[in-house]
Design a protein around this nucleic acid. Sequence first.
DNA 1: GTCTATATGATGATAGAC
DNA 2: GTCTATCATCATATAGAC
Lengths: 198, 198
Amino acid sequence: MSNQASSSTLIPDTRTRILDLAETLLLERGFNAFSYQHLARELGVRPAAIHYHFPSKDDLGTALVTRQLRRLRKWRDLPRVADLPPNQQLEALFAVYDNHLGHDRRVCLFGALAADFRTLPAPMQAELRTFNRELTEWLAQVLAVGRATSTLRFVGSPAAKATQVLTTLAGALQVARVHDETPFQVIVGQLRLELLPS
Amino acid sequence: MSNQASSSTLIPDTRTRILDLAETLLLERGFNAFSYQHLARELGVRPAAIHYHFPSKDDLGTALVTRQLRRLRKWRDLPRVADLPPNQQLEALFAVYDNHLGHDRRVCLFGALAADFRTLPAPMQAELRTFNRELTEWLAQVLAVGRATSTLRFVGSPAAKATQVLTTLAGALQVARVHDETPFQVIVGQLRLELLPS
DNA sequence: GTCTATATGATGATAGAC
DNA sequence: GTCTATCATCATATAGAC
């Protein structure tokens, strides 16, 4: 723990370098499409070196989701996000997905793991459920306040709309992967058109 | 070709049995999560027997997408679908996704392949793009007619709305996989609420 | 504490038997 | 034409060197 990502040093330690690379491969190719060999080759070490930091691939996968969950909570609670009006919180959410698009059209964590879900280790499944539940609850709250203050507009319950919007955004990144950026922009444009009062 | 699925016999030939099982595994576990061994064990043959019918896994994968594309075109052109009014065509589409849900919460073809897209062979990628494009074009047409005849209601272009709705449906099956059927029903309920005039 | 050499099994694919 | 025995390679994982 001498050189963590959270410290002030600029050079990440091996553990963090592994996590960063694994995250890239997960979001760009899928969990079952990269191996310890891929990681090791890219990092200039032997596969077993990865096993030291993450005994099994299950451990690595779980660590990846746990880190993302930690990031979600941190992001959500940032003053520059938490203190925004609901319509701008929604835009901040769009910006996160747009940022994925800019990083070589990465899909989001949920979109990367949903299809292969049944092949994932149980702890990873549990963490991903928590991740999605907390994100949905956050957006439901944003939507509820937004409608109450007339800065957002929609029919149905805030919880239902939150589930729908997040599902659409996850899917939009997948469509962008299969085709190009256009459908993503089209979908987000459609969401804005529907949610933001004219 | 002595015993094809399209013939009147009830016992599918080996090739069709392979395709059916591979399709199940693809939609329930993902393309990179099943092997020729899995197929062979289940079918009671050796892995190399699969290689006879589909020389490489790439060939098998491509055949799977091609078959689904053929089915899509057939379904779309069925009188009982093509002759419906737009709102009922939309319901017919929902029924297809609901049917996936009923089959052990299978995701749709697109949802199964999008995350791992970059690891797929080029012909498979091309077929999946065609599949998604044709489905979107079909729905866009349904939506256009629906709005013109006041049986469906939405803002934005029919093409944009079609892209959004299909993306949402694909995502809804993925959410159902990760959690349970509830979010799927919630999302489809939300789509009905928004698209069908009250 | 950190990593390398090595083992064991699964993977996709070939050559050849029936 | 259809499938089986076999292969080379890659997968994850362990035991042990530094």
